[in-house]
Nucleic acid binder design. Structure first.
Lengths: 249, 249
DNA sequence: TGTTAATTTTGATTCAGATCAATTAAAGCG
DNA sequence: CGCTTTAATTGATCTGAATCAAAATTAACA
């Protein structure tokens, strides 16, 4: 099966450009730009914003003006169901771009909530479109970012449509692992920022099922779970877990 | 719940521009362009291609050069799993744009297969990017199309993550209904182009479950099913079916 | 720091959908 | 046109995850 281990994020693995505007350095946008172009982009991306844990970056239904590039922290995006419960559509970390869904109708289609104190750069979209006309490589890169989001969503669709609980959790952990690795953190040991319920909501599972899947993976010595702290003991076997959804049953 | 009834397509409901290049008239791209701009776009979109029922428009892994706008027909996109079975990621009809997922890596990430004889316009992506630099409204519209695809995918993710079989099928039928209506066909009566297995693959269900869900909806007099021919008798109740996923159980 | 609230784990039970199996219907095709 | 293949329906049974329930652990905060 061709499921992407990276579920739902925007890749920054290839960020290499040295960049005068410090706020831009760690973001996904300035890839491959020269100093002068980064200057132009920097003028657009100047405005920063802090969001406390639990705070909203934007709400579903609010007017769309800007994309947000995460400078630090960790956020979830979710839609509120009419009965008050919420469905998580993604988890987002440093370097990733939020708000792509809002371009279509100039209205945000989901809430973005900080799971820890976070900092974002606001990128007025009209200005981004404008300068991307004069910087082809920026336009091209932006298109790739949007496209990548589509590919990732297809990966999640596949996961939700065809994997069972344990496989979904394995995919999820491997995805986080990879994203932490890309950012220079340990791929085998990290702290979850979200609750079991939020994981379950994202993976289409109930929180009890998530908890049981964690316990099962621990019993098999593939991971060690201490509440939010996760240690991956055998990444190869974890990959096997999710890779054989339709083979081993 | 905020699930979009439109699962997975690119909206052409607002196509109004009178257009010299006949091949462009029914497509989603030329929205809001003047005649001169349409001329420019037309030069890019000239190349047409026919695909027979069962034929491939593109294959997963093949190099990306062009987007494809569907002029007529009906296609599915799917990824092949290692065991040979395939997972359907979308159904696509006239006016919709295929290939957005391939922009990210310059490689197609899925197969596109015609479910009936179809005709597409090839749109070399490099050229599209180039002329969109000089036609801001085209660029803006293209971004909206990509964004809409992301929103739709989120809708499918929600569907797969939180709806049960009957609700999924109701969503699916309402989505098709709306897309047929937009194209000037009946919203209450249409022929399915895909098999129960393909529907199941798309909805994360087994074909038997799809069949049973059809039968159930028919027993309730909400729809009438005659193999591939579907008649929606009570669209309001069908909407109710999918709207109350978490309320009525 | 102690008290309350939220989160997590684990067990028992239930149920929706998968799987297995057989029949019927439709579509290709020589 | 009849024969073969593919697709669809329906029934019986099984199973993975949901649900219900309770205890244990952790976090929040006054």
């Amino acid at each position: 099966m061709l499921i992407d281990t990276s579920l739902h994020h925007l890749d920054i693995s290839h960020i290499r450009s040295s960049c005068a505007t410090c706020s831009l350095r760690e973001l996904c946008l300035p890839v491959g730009l020269n100093d002068q172009e980064i200057q132009v982009l920097g003028d657009v991306v100047s405005h920063k914003r802090k969001i406390q844990r639990g705070g909203y970056l934007h709400r579903s239904g609010s007017q769309f003006q800007s994309l947000f590039a995460i400078r630090s922290g960790f956020l979830k995006t979710c839609v509120l169901e009419e009965d008050g419960r919420q469905q998580v559509t993604g988890f987002h970390m440093t370097g990733e771009l939020l708000g792509l869904d809002a371009i279509s109708t100039d209205t945000h289609t989901c809430d973005a909530i900080a799971l820890e104190d976070s900092e974002v750069c606001e990128i007025p979209f009209a200005k981004l479109e404008e300068i991307s006309r004069t910087i082809p490589s920026l336009m091209r890169h932006f298109h790739k970012i949007m496209s990548r989001e589509i590919v990732r969503d297809h990966g999640v669709m596949l996961l939700l449509g065809s994997m069972k609980a344990e496989e979904r959790l394995a995919s999820f952990l491997l995805n986080l692992s990879r994203r932490f690795l890309m950012r220079g953190y340990s791929e085998s040991e990290f702290n979850l920022r979200m609750t079991r319920e939020e994981i379950g909501s994202y993976l289409g599972l109930k929180l009890e099922t998530v908890s049981r899947a964690f316990s099962k993976l621990q019993d098999e010595n593939i991971i060690t779970v201490d509440n939010k702290h996760i240690q991956i003991n055998d990444i190869a076997r974890l990959r096997l877990k999710m890779g054989n959804s339709s083979c081993i049953t």
